[in-house]
Structures are given as C-alpha cells and as structure tokens.
C-alpha cells in the first residue's frame, strides 16, 4: 500500500505531539527550572560603540587606500604613456638621472 506524504506528515505530527505531551514529571520540572534560570539571568546590553568604531576605521582605511591608489596609479600610467609615445631612445631614459643632475648643476653653477 502506498503512503502519501500527507499521511507521513499527519502520523509524524500525531506522534510528536504525543511525545511532547507525555513528558515525565522529572523532565518537566527540569525544564521549568531551566526557564526560571534563563529568565533570572542578567541580560546582555548591546554595545554599539566598538562596532561603530571598527566600522568607521574600516571606512577610513578603505578611503585612504583608494585615495592612495588613485594618486599613484594614474600618474604612473600617464608617465608610461608619455615614455611610450616619445621618440627618445631607451638610453635617454636610462640616463635621465644624469640629465636631471646636469640641469640642476647648470642652474646652480
């Protein structure tokens, strides 16, 4: 004989209800004690201060990081484009420090 899902549900619920209703006196007494202990326990207050401080620190750190990325990366990118687009040879760029020094020494000298 085929059993439908509805039959399974109904029979299980009947047995579970019966089990819950038929708990022995000792178990019920201990459940009451557990309830009383829970109700008498001091309640925890939610302290939002630390969480708020952490969230603000994270936002600040993220902002600084993004700002740092924006400040450095595009500049490097533009410099690279400028180098790639220029007709100078690679030797010129390798000796750039030397030319900078030459300019400075010429201006001061």
């Amino acid at each position: 004989m085929k059993t439908s899902d509805e039959t399974v549900r109904r029979q299980a619920v009947e047995q579970l209800d019966r089990a819950a209703a038929g708990l022995d006196a000792a178990t019920l007494r201990r459940l009451r004690q557990a309830r009383t202990r829970a109700l008498e326990a001091p309640r925890q207050q939610r302290h939002w201060g630390p969480a708020l401080a952490l969230a603000m620190s994270l936002v600040l750190a993220l902002g600084l990081w993004l700002h740092g990325r924006q400040a450095v990366l595009p500049e490097t990118g533009l410099q690279d484009l400028e180098v790639l687009g220029a007709g100078e040879g690679l030797d010129f760029y390798e000796d750039l420090d030397f030319y900078q020094w030459l300019v400075v020494s010429h201006e001061t000298g």
Partner: peptide, 21 residues
C-alpha cells in the same frame, strides 16, 4: 535526555540574554 535539557536551557538563556527586547 540530559544533553537535550542542556541544549534547551542554553537556547532559553541565549534568547533571554540577547533578544528579550
């Protein structure tokens, strides 16, 4: 049975302490 009682007590305690409001 003993473990079940502990679990239920713990759940009651946690509900009262954290979510009573």
């Amino acid at each position: 049975g003993e473990e079940a009682l502990d679990i239920v007590q713990d759940a009651m305690l946690r509900l009262v302490q954290r979510y009573a409001d």
